[in-house]
Design a protein around this nucleic acid. Structure first.
Lengths: 231, 231
DNA sequence: CGCAGCCTTGACAAATGTCAACAAACGTGG
DNA sequence: CCACGTTTGTTGACATTTGTCAAGGCTGCG
């Protein structure tokens, strides 16, 4: 494994406190692979052979049922995904595909479970990571159940504004994927954007400008217990 | 703490592998309390002072935003709730109220975090518990995003059928709470039940009889990656 | 009995999805 | 560089789903 990948992965909360020996052992068993866009890396229902780490590119997690499918999350570097399945040695609940050309580190799940048994600092890091993941999904459920699609979009835009630190930013996702992530159709998203123009949102292609933050905020009513990443 | 509570709690996966000394220390700092029905035990946003364990009764986890609220889960004995917040020392994301007269064991969150630091067997149990919780919420999100409300109800009935081991069973929740849990209004639930009569569901008050399992299953299309508790 | 809360029903409104058409953006091969 | 086809986004018309409001029935309990 190239040194740059090694050190990038080492910096993750999940691994940063781990003993050198344990981390080295994990990495020796790991694979580094590059994938072209639109490759299905994981199919839901399959046994979880590897813990995945995105080093560059972007990964979409999605799920299907009865001919429908929905975007569950987008994973960006540097982060892990499907940790819970690896630890539990259970089937994947979500599928994953590359959105762009992506570079992944794959750690055999059984190595992860072995390290988890041996290293208490790793076990502790996993606890914090899983607690964070759990809380993210709970917040997402609240977003879905308590808000209309237009409100979800408005709050999504405010979160993106926070992330970018600017009132003007580009959408990180194609609109069709954003629509699916927010739990609506592309047509509905298109109309929701139109509807938010009245509250100071200007859309040009995938470029967004918030022209009246107060107005949008009054409409969106963002809440830390749903919208703050860190809470 | 009464011996019967002590041993009930001890049996939970979360504590069963823990060293006696550590478990004893946790229990010495714990409180046992009885609550009447309809008491709000936890308000979302508050700091997480205690890990809660239901020993008897039933607890509803719910969330509110902008004047709306939704039922997130029902917790039945013997189980813990809000573990993630306790571990992360973060604010509660959900509120909790008793549905019935309930008996709870409350363990100060800082004791839980101390035990988590000291006991690697406890840390490992927490990992498995959180991974399970995470996967449950992911399944719930799939249910919400991929299915219509009537499909969610149909699959809910099939899950209850599995739990009860019989084609005839009583609903464990008031219908209004079930509606909220499934993400719909009571009126819509009422009509969804009506709609399922055509697929072999007989409803009398809170008593359900599935008269044509094949037909209902064909309609509901249950999927282990959404509906199986253990997966 | 009489009240209060829950459930159901009907009528209606709002939100969201579907389908079809078209425009705009993108990538590929000539 | 352009022409072409493919994909994505938008728009309109319409259907379906879901929510809202109001009324009435049922049930349980003081």
């Amino acid at each position: 494994m190239p040194d740059s990948d090694y050190s990038e992965v080492r910096k993750l909360h999940l691994f940063s406190q781990m003993e050198d020996a344990q981390f080295g052992a994990l990495m020796r068993g790991a694979y580094v692979q590059n994938f072209p866009p639109q490759i299905e890396l994981i199919t839901e229902g399959d046994p979880s052979d590897f813990l995945h780490i995105v080093v560059s590119g972007a990964i979409e997690l999605f799920s299907s049922w009865n001919g429908r499918d929905t975007s569950m999350a987008t994973v960006r570097p540097v982060s892990t995904f499907i940790l819970a399945a690896s630890i539990k040695d259970a089937a994947y609940l979500m599928s994953a595909r590359t959105l762009e050309k992506s570079r992944l580190v794959l750690i055999p799940s059984q190595d992860v479970r072995a390290a988890f048994e041996e290293s208490s600092s790793f076990a502790k890091a996993i606890v914090l990571e899983l607690a964070q993941c759990y809380r993210s999904v709970v917040k997402n459920t609240k977003d879905l159940k308590l808000r209309t699609s237009r409100e979800r979009l408005a709050n999504y835009l405010l979160r993106q504004k926070e992330r970018s630190g600017s009132l003007a930013f580009d959408l990180a996702l194609e609109k069709r994927r954003l629509a699916s992530f927010l739990g609506m159709t592309p047509e509905n998203l298109s109309r929701s954007f139109k509807g938010l123009e009245a509250y100071g949102v200007k859309v040009t292609g995938n470029h967004i400008v918030i022209t009246d933050l107060d107005d949008l905020t009054r409409f969106a009513k963002p809440n830390p217990l749903i919208d703050d990443f860190s809470v």
